[in-house]
């Protein structure tokens, strides 16, 4: 394609992802143990995260579900004393391999945090931040619009693109963070309790968004809310706390397609947790 043609044709911003296959794994977790210093936070998590599906990590607080999530894009590297024994396979490689650059991993695997954390910049610059970081400098306006539409925020902010992102409401800020994450079209998006700091109506919007986004992305969400997992997740994985050795070590009890998981939990802790949570 020549330069002129490229500019004349509508920009092909999104090339379709490979067609989803049920067995197609985006990420495979083979974790033996995760330590913070001497504290063993998590053990034995073997989990396959399917492409173009929403996978929910659930469990009581302190079970290490956020820790597991943060392994997938190596965010735990920021914590002093963090050690991982095991591997996380992405694009056929162990991302904890010495040759792998964690920065490159985080660019390919986006993240949305518990607290909305937009940068103290304008709405538009929040979205272009990641694009510029990855060297994308063309069609920025269109890409901003696409990302904001993708995050169901465009109609609310299209007239204030140059306003500070900090002036948005909490729910809007969180959707801006989603727009910021999808602007670069990462392969996987990690969401760490994305709705815990926002109101129910905004929560609903974000849940609808997840269902829409999985056509293009693989999504992993941590939630303490079982109904939420039931509503949005294709697969559910349950982590529980093992207090047997006097410690508080989280481990994966079981995982599977959401409908089956809730209908017929196989393990005792899962049955108790699901039953308890539903009264």
């Amino acid at each position: 394609m020549s330069q002129a043609e490229a500019l004349a044709a509508p920009p092909a911003l999104y090339t379709p992802h490979a067609a989803p296959r049920a067995t197609d794994a985006a990420v495979e977790l083979r974790l033996k143990s995760l330590h913070y210093g001497d504290f063993r936070a998590v053990r034995d998590v073997n989990l396959t995260i399917r492409r173009n599906a929403v996978t929910a990590l659930i469990g009581p607080s302190g079970c290490g579900k956020s820790t597991v999530l943060r392994c997938i894009n190596r965010m735990n590297d920021l914590v002093r004393g963090f050690r991982l024994d095991g591997e996380v396979r992405f694009r056929g490689r162990d991302i904890y391999d010495k040759a792998v650059d964690p920065v490159a991993v985080r660019r390919a695997i986006g993240m949305v945090f518990q607290q909305p954390n937009p940068f103290a910049m304008s709405v538009a610059r929040n979205v272009t931040f990641g694009l510029k970081l990855n060297g994308v400098r063309d069609h920025l306006n269109e890409r901003v619009e696409q990302a904001l539409r993708g995050a169901a925020l465009w109609d609310e902010v299209k007239d204030h693109l140059n306003k500070s992102a900090l002036s948005l409401s909490g729910g809007q800020q969180q959707r801006l963070c989603i727009a910021r994450a999808i602007a670069t079209q990462p392969e996987v998006i990690l969401m760490d309790e994305p709705c815990s700091a926002i109101d129910p109506i905004a929560t609903l919007k974000i849940e609808e968004l997840m269902t829409a986004l999985k056509a293009k992305y693989t999504i992993v969400i941590v939630t303490h809310n079982l109904q939420q997992a039931r509503r949005v997740a294709d697969d559910t994985a349950f982590l529980y706390v093992d207090r047997s050795a006097g410690g508080r070590t989280g481990y994966l009890v079981e995982s599977g397609p959401t409908a089956e998981f809730f209908a017929n939990p196989r393990e005792k802790p899962t049955q108790d947790y699901v039953a308890g949570a539903f009264g």
């Binding site: 394609m1 379709p16 920065v103 994308v136 079209q185």
Partner: peptide
């Protein structure tokens, strides 16, 4: 132009300049 990518992502690893 960004080069087409089978995965459809715009994410690029850090450039040599970034690392330098």
């Amino acid at each position: 132009m960004t080069r087409p990518d089978p995965t459809g992502t715009l994410a690029r690893p850090p450039t040599r300049f970034d690392k330098w």
